[in-house]
């Protein structure tokens, strides 16, 4: 028989591995979501660069398809803990509030041009990504800050090719970040 100190150490080992499994599962799911958004954002930025007149439609389609994809991902990977359905509704509300607040800032309070919009949405998205990372793992922080920094560099220093820059920085960054998450 072991003593209480050894028993505590064994339970601590169990807690540690359970946390690692949860982190690993979260990264796996987040990785799929990041790659999904990355592909869509890459495509929408390319459309914005090549055919600016269709940019608005491209982004509306990307937002709808993107959120739809996340819903499918959530349905295929249902939350394991109790109250999972309530958590799913909260997540959906987060997206509604996210887009509503973004719209309010860019179209009601301010009247952003295409270049400002091209910088605002990724920065806004990456702000949430970085904040989430403070609770859910450093990979979110690294991806969020990295893409935000490159977005600002592009906004201030890249000229006409800004949408192309964003296709690779935002779209490509999310794809690479998502693939990196799977390897952690």
């Amino acid at each position: 028989m072991i003593d209480s100190k050894e028993a505590s150490a064994a339970l601590a080992d169990i807690d540690d591995i359970v946390q690692r499994v949860k982190q690993s599962q979260l990264y796996e799911l987040a990785s799929l979501a990041a790659v999904w958004w990355g592909v869509l954002v890459f495509a929408a930025n390319l459309v914005t660069w090549l055919w600016p007149v269709y940019a608005v439609y491209a982004w509306v389609v990307v937002d709808v398809v993107g959120v739809g994809g996340l819903v499918v991902l959530r349905v295929l990977n249902p939350p394991q803990h109790l109250g999972g359905a309530a958590a799913s509704i909260r997540l959906l509300l987060v997206f509604v509030l996210f887009f509503a607040f973004g719209y309010l800032c860019t179209n009601v309070i301010g009247h952003f041009g295409p270049r400002q919009l091209g910088a605002f949405w990724p920065l806004y998205f990456m702000l949430f990504y970085t904040l989430a990372g403070l609770w859910f793992g450093y990979a979110f922080v690294a991806i969020g800050l990295g893409i935000a920094a490159l977005t600002l560099i592009g906004f201030f220093y890249i000229g006409e090719a800004f949408p192309l820059w964003m296709a690779f920085v935002n779209g490509g960054g999310l794809i690479l970040g998502g693939l990196w998450m799977r390897r952690i």
Partner: peptide
């Protein structure tokens, strides 16, 4: 205590699988 599970690595394996 279960002697099979108690070994440190087997404990980790079972803890990881049980978390799924």
């Amino acid at each position: 205590l279960d002697d099979i599970i108690h070994q440190p690595l087997r404990l980790k394996i079972m803890a990881a699988l049980n978390a799924l």
